[in-house]
Design a protein around this nucleic acid. Structure first.
Length: 761
DNA sequence: AAGGCCAGAGTTTTT
DNA sequence: CTCTGGCCTT
């Protein structure tokens, strides 16, 4: 115990050792949040207040869940495997597997990822002859997920007009289709769990009695349904330990509701509120910048980070004339950092939107600096992997129509669009899955489809006793996937990925502890059957509160869940020491010695779309706050006068966030020059910029009219500061489009408008 | 069944 | 500009 609590600061110690009551921990960036959360769990267990089985710990990402589990395992000599530590979705999956009958799901129900969900919706719209111009699949998907995340079924959604009514109607049909196929989307995992717990008193009481301590990470990111779910599980007597940071709430656009923090405090009558404000990550100037910036937000719960680390270096700011030059400057700075011995992997380049990485990547590539971009395609989302998974899905649940359609003719086996149409008609007519409808198709189409069914049947039943990785291997052969990619010229990489899938299966089996001898199938009984609705009040399986849940999943089912819930790595070239490139969003939770925040311009960061939305600007500011607090020792911020966007140059003002930072913590690297002598002074100031770059810049700025220049900053009495975007006409008939940011784009006569030159920062 | 062509869009993302 | 999706042609 001494060990556990050793080295905690007073606030951390207080949080970890709080009594068994609801608590809210306001944990600032870099304040040791994960440490507090895991130590709290360890302390509760070690002091005998709760058994490992009585803990429910929820996170948003698999990464966070794994981190928590492994840290806990290092603190205590316990088996963490059976513990309920995981993501909302992962835990709900576990729950639904154990109670699939009560949840009215087939035992081998499968999980749709967002791509699967979208293609399912497209397929449905087509079958219903719905105009997908009028009802775009994406909008319908958004509508459905949104409703589910508020806990609403189709019949609960209020249709306020005809257009909306159609969405509701389609939502209902979509749910029926999912039910028929035995598949659930991400939101459904949560909603189904919530509904089952709501209506089944025995189940609810069982789990409420079991989870005495509920701990939630990143509470500011919870959506409405997740909050309701927590409330339900907490019941009257369990303690909820919520850790979050309202200043780092950056996911409102996907349904997160920061308001849940205040709601939690109020509705749970939280007596224990602890702020973790001691920052162990960043030097003083960096923290000052973060604190001063975020203070511009209203409606904060209130928090100020402090450090013992001293001021450190000021935040370096650079203004460039173009995005190309911004990248060029970045390269030079990175080079000198590397010369000083900084690690490449400890330097991050952040940007607001993915499109911005292009120019930077190009420059890094040319300079020969290894880099790694986060956010690419993930392993389980690759086409060849999706195909292989579809075969596995059919083996596990042949009524999954999405899986069926994906591979029925891949590799090509002469089953064309006409055969599929016939099959779909038959399926609709008999109200059954495509797979089940095959015997109802006659003729040539029927026999080729029959061949496919026999193939799947063979794969399903021949290998029942094989370990999972053998099943995967056999499937790759029998399906003809390997053979197909062998004939393709670019197929080598894909085959390599398919082989990696076998390794992934092997790794999964060893990590999840499925015995090597365990059959990959639970047997024919495990066939998908759209079960009857739950009989209310049905006796609940008795589960020993201390025993891990019975493994009701076959290894194959479990592996498929794993593939959907954990799409895998989404970073390229992992492993080697490389510069880290990512959006600010994906940087959340990470930290680096040196950080570059690039593209700090009005319209980009804050993003123009966000400035329209209610509360959008505050979210952008929080995003900026997240970006700043990623840096340990050195922080750079850069912005550019021009930037190529959608194929044309845009002239932006520097981000308003610069005006919200403390001058004392800033160091401007670029000279504060007078605009009229712009080129001459720039040239001398940027001697280290390659000649070609300077020439390109010069060319883009040679156009002058009535003494004004494109790209120049001006001030107007009414509209404030703006940038000249274009100039038309000349002499006495000369007008200019000027971007005044907040006030929008104005067309002004340069001979009439009273404009002043702005000496740029 | 595959490749070519054109229109249209173009924040942020995990599960 | 650059990627995607849908449609049309071979």
């Amino acid at each position: 115990m001494q060990n556990l609590l050793h080295n905690l600061n007073p606030e951390q110690l207080a949080a970890v050792t709080l009594p068994s009551q609801h608590a809210m921990i306001l944990a600032g960036a870099g304040s040791g949040k994960t440490r507090v959360l895991t130590t709290r769990i360890a302390w509760l267990i070690q002091t005998g207040q709760v058994s490992p089985a009585g803990i429910l710990a929820v996170t948003f990402t698999n990464k966070a869940a794994k981190e928590m589990t492994s840290r806990l395992g290092a603190m205590l000599p316990i088996n963490t495997r059976g513990m309920w530590i995981g993501t909302f979705h992962g835990l709900c999956n576990r729950f639904l597997r154990a109670h699939y009958r009560d949840a009215a799901l087939p035992q081998s129900f499968q999980i749709l990822d967002s791509g699967d969900q979208l293609s399912m919706i497209k397929r449905m719209l087509k079958a219903l002859n719905v105009d997908d111009e009028k009802y775009p699949p994406r909008n319908l998907m958004y509508f459905i997920n949104n409703a589910k995340e508020q806990g609403l079924r189709a019949q609960d959604v209020e249709a306020y007009d005809d257009y909306n009514r159609k969405f509701v109607e389609l939502y209902d049909i979509y749910d029926q289709q999912c039910q028929r196929e035995g598949v659930v989307d991400f939101a459904e995992l949560l909603l189904r769990t919530y509904e089952l717990l709501s209506r089944s008193q025995p189940l609810r009481e069982h789990y409420q009695a079991r989870f005495r301590h509920i701990l939630v990470d990143e509470f500011q990111d919870t959506n409405d349904l997740q909050y309701k779910w927590l409330k339900l599980l907490a019941g009257q007597s369990n303690a909820v330990f919520a850790v979050g940071d309202d200043d780092q709430s950056i996911y409102a656009f996907r349904g997160a509701n920061v308001g849940n923090m205040a709601a939690f405090e109020r509705e749970f009558r939280v007596q224990n509120l602890i702020k973790l404000e001691q920052n162990y990550r960043s030097h003083g100037h960096i923290l000052d910048a973060a604190n001063t910036l975020i203070a511009h937000n209203t409606r904060r719960l209130g928090k100020n980070l402090r450090t013992d680390a001293g001021h450190g270096e000021p935040v370096r700011i650079f203004e460039s004339s173009s995005d190309l030059q911004e990248a060029q400057w970045l390269i030079e700075e990175v080079k000198s950092l590397l010369n000083e011995g900084w690690m490449r992997s400890e330097i991050a380049v952040l940007y607001r939107s993915n499109a911005q990485s292009r120019v930077i990547e190009h420059a890094l590539f040319t300079a020969g600096i290894p880099y790694r971009v986060y956010g690419g395609q993930r392993f389980f989302e690759r086409a060849e992997i999706k195909h292989a998974i579809a075969y596995l899905q059919l083996m596990d649940n042949p009524h999954n129509d999405s899986a069926f359609l994906r591979v029925v003719n891949f590799p090509a086996r002469g089953i064309g669009a006409r055969s599929i149409e016939q099959l779909q008609d038959a399926a609709r007519q008999h109200g059954m899955s495509l797979y089940a409808a095959v015997p109802h198709v006659s003729g040539k189409a029927g026999s080729s489809l029959g061949g496919f069914v026999r193939l799947v049947e063979r794969m399903r039943f021949e290998n029942q006793t094989m370990p999972l990785q053998e099943v995967v291997k056999a499937m790759l052969d029998a399906s003809g996937l390997i053979a197909h990619y062998q004939t393709e010229k670019e197929g080598a990489d894909r085959i390599e990925n398919l082989e990696q899938l076998v390794s992934a299966a092997m790794l999964f089996v060893s990590e999840e502890g499925f015995g090597i001898d365990a059959p990959a199938f639970a047997g024919p009984k495990a066939q998908a059957v759209a079960g009857p609705a739950l009989v209310d009040g049905e006796e609940v399986e008795v589960i020993d509160a201390d025993a891990p849940l019975p493994t009701v999943m076959s290894p194959l089912s479990a592996f498929l869940s794993h593939a959907s819930l954990e799409a895998g790595d989404n970073q390229a070239q992992a492993g080697q020491d490389a510069l880290q490139l990512m959006t600010v969003h994906s940087a959340k939770g990470l930290e680096f010695d040196a950080v570059f925040i690039t593209g700090l311009e009005e319209g980009l960061f804050p993003h123009e779309n966000s400035t329209q939305e209610e509360g959008g600007l505050e979210e952008e500011r929080r995003l900026m706050y997240v970006a700043i607090t990623r840096a340990r020792k050195r922080l750079y911020m850069s912005f550019s006068q021009t930037r190529m966007l959608h194929g044309q140059s845009r002239y932006n003002m520097r981000s308003r966030f610069f005006d919200e930072l403390p001058d004392a913590s800033l160091k401007w690297l670029s000279p504060r020059v007078q605009q009229h002598s712009w080129f001459a002074q720039r040239k001398t100031a940027w001697d280290d910029v390659p000649e070609a770059g300077v020439n390109a810049i010069a060319q883009s700025f040679t156009r002058k009219d009535a003494g004004w220049r494109i790209g120049e900053s001006v001030a107007h009495a009414k509209f404030g500061e703006g940038v000249i975007v274009s100039i038309e006409g000349s002499g006495t008939n000369c007008r200019a489009h000027i971007n005044f940011g907040k006030h929008g784009m104005k067309l002004l006569d340069l001979n009439i408008a009273k404009l002043e030159r702005v000496a740029k920062a």
